[in-house]
Design a protein around this nucleic acid. Structure first.
Lengths: 178, 178
DNA sequence: TTCAGCATGTAATATGTTACATGATTAG
DNA sequence: CTAATCATGTAACATATTACATGCTGAA
């Protein structure tokens, strides 16, 4: 009961095909909810049965129809109902933290930490570019734009935090070596 | 291929029954990897077949044996092998961020944010207490103790970051109201 | 005697991943 | 003409959750 809602949010921003949604999940939404196209197609079919979405199918000689999914009033209603429920706390499953805690090989952990740090730096740069480009005047935002901006800010916080933690890990490991 | 490793880490610290592991997953390890007792029992059975763990079963008249799981050399080997692989980036699935991005009901999001902030504050306090109690001299730590400490530090960073983000969300929503 | 905690598990269901399958269109 | 991108899906498998089932022990 949650990928449905992520899809509803995506469709409330803009109608899309399954393929299109998959790409959007790879890009912005994927930063806090990942989904493959196979899963998206299955869930969309179920949501269609529920009446949360409608399709606008376009025939394509011989091939499967191209479908554009549109959120229905019932879908918007469901999104609203779900928004009003307290949200479950985030389940962060972190292989890396398991590894760190096990500490089976200090030098492997060290190089993994450096690799992760570089990933955080790259993602942060991408987020900051989006921030500058799309939200030059954050204090003037309202509604869905404000929500998207605050979600992006969450990503920025998360990446900065990740970098700081990596630095602390590296300092800790280097200190223990001497 | 990951809850196995979390269990191996737990068992490398200390042998335990399935029930015991479930409790440890509720407590410290559960902060970065959650698992129910049902899942743990199933996975332990598989790990036993793989030879990663051994059981030290105690008969209990009529009832199912009480089993204490012990990590084997093969299990330690597997843990080492896995540690040396680069770790997959964390999959953070955040209902809350989906909600925030959808922004279907500002006042519901506001109260949810306040609730989450309080959770972060409480968890942070618990972590900081552990830090003070168990790691009074962090610069002297080595090996698994250092790993556990750095994992805890990750939790502390995470909670502080969560609080800062909640504050930013609340400021943003309050600003948009005026 | 009742409730919490210890202790083990099965079964059904839901969710998510990986592999496979097909074919058009467009840019180099 | 070849590779990438658009576009849809099925099938098999793996993983995780929820409901159910059982029974002892010790404290209030």
């Amino acid at each position: 009961m949650a990928i449905e809602h992520a899809i509803l949010v995506a469709l409330s921003e803009r109608s899309a095909s399954g393929y299109d949604l998959a790409r959007r999940f790879d890009a912005s939404i994927g930063h806090f909810w990942r989904a493959t196209h196979q899963q998206i197609y299955k869930v969309l079919a179920r949501m269609d049965e529920n009446g949360w979405v409608e399709t606008d199918a376009v025939k394509r000689n011989g091939r499967l129809d191209k479908k554009t999914y549109v959120i229905t009033p019932a879908g918007r209603n469901e999104l609203l109902r779900w928004t009003r429920e307290p949200s479950a706390s985030d389940v962060t499953r972190s292989d890396f933290t398991v590894k760190l805690r096990g500490f089976a090989d200090a030098s492997a952990i060290k190089s993994d930490t450096m690799r992760r740090r570089a990933e955080h730096v790259a993602t942060l740069a991408a987020y900051e570019e989006s921030e500058q480009r799309f939200y030059p005047n954050p204090t003037e935002l309202t509604g869905a734009d404000l929500g998207s901006y605050l979600a992006l800010r969450g990503g920025i916080h998360y990446e900065r935090n990740g970098i700081a933690w990596c630095d602390e890990i590296l300092t800790g490991i280097n200190g223990a070596e001497n």
